[in-house]
Design a protein around this nucleic acid. Structure first.
Lengths: 138, 138
DNA sequence: TTTCATGCAAAGGTTTTGCAGTCGC
DNA sequence: GCGACTGCAAAACCTTTGCATGAAA
């Protein structure tokens, strides 16, 4: 997997598969019920422990939109880096990519290093607003 | 205050003062203990209720760095809009401002509207990395 | 007086932990 | 067999809520 030598068991693989086969951002409980529906018996505690393990190894990202639960997404090394749009009306979380953003963030990191002595390693951007559907529903 | 006609009691004023007189991002519990030290008796529940009230009225911002607790900061209308640097080593949260960021975010919002039909109303940026002190301590 | 704010304790929801049993190498 | 993984239940944690009391307009 991450090449970090973490043991990949059936249960861990099942959890990873769930994350790989969705475009949504799932909570631990989401994963728990999805596996249950597939008759894969995995305890919630195991899911939490596994997700943390994945996170420590860079296999998944944590998404925190501030609603009190943590969501996870599979990190596809081949995919484009993206950030999140959070609809404040329906709560939906979407991903976006922007052509000019990567270059800007690189410049930004350089300025931050120069002005604050802070070495930027990663970043999260959340844009809050009204999604297309909620806009049209008005 | 916000002009919204919320009653400002002594306890609420005390909570607001704590937030006004710090550069840090405080949790409800932080505020609770700071007030306790000043011999101002305010229950935790009241602090949570008050912070939520302030938040609804745009008097404070919520900061969520993903550690399971919510932090709050006073919104100073006169101050420059800023975002956050989170040190993954010592956990410290700092603010930063970048001269070119506002213009970029404005353009970004326009592109998001065009490409996704999503109307951006606000945003949060978190840069994760190693702060100056932790860099030097190595 | 009448409404709103507060404290306390209890409840709520999410996540973590302890421990005994189990699996994989 | 040994060490790592798992499930269950209990605990921990932050936050919210109900209710009776108290303060404010």
């Amino acid at each position: 997997m991450g090449g970090k030598g973490i043991r990949i068991t059936r249960k861990r693989q099942a959890i990873l598969d769930v994350l790989k086969n969705t475009d949504e951002h799932l909570t631990a409980e989401n994963i728990y019920f999805i596996l249950k529906r597939k008759n894969v018996k995995v305890g919630l505690a195991t899911i939490y422990r596994t997700l943390d393990l994945f996170y420590q190894n860079g296999i998944v990202n944590k998404i925190n939109i501030g609603d009190g639960t943590i969501r996870y997404e599979y990190v596809d090394k081949k995919s484009v880096h993206h950030h999140h749009l959070v609809c404040i009306k329906c709560g939906k979380v979407m991903e976006y990519t922007d052509e000019k953003e990567p270059a800007f963030l690189e410049e930004l990191a350089a300025r931050i290093k120069k002005n604050y002595g802070f070495s930027v390693l990663s970043h999260e951007i959340y844009l809050y607003g009204i999604c297309k559907e909620c806009n049209e529903g008005e």
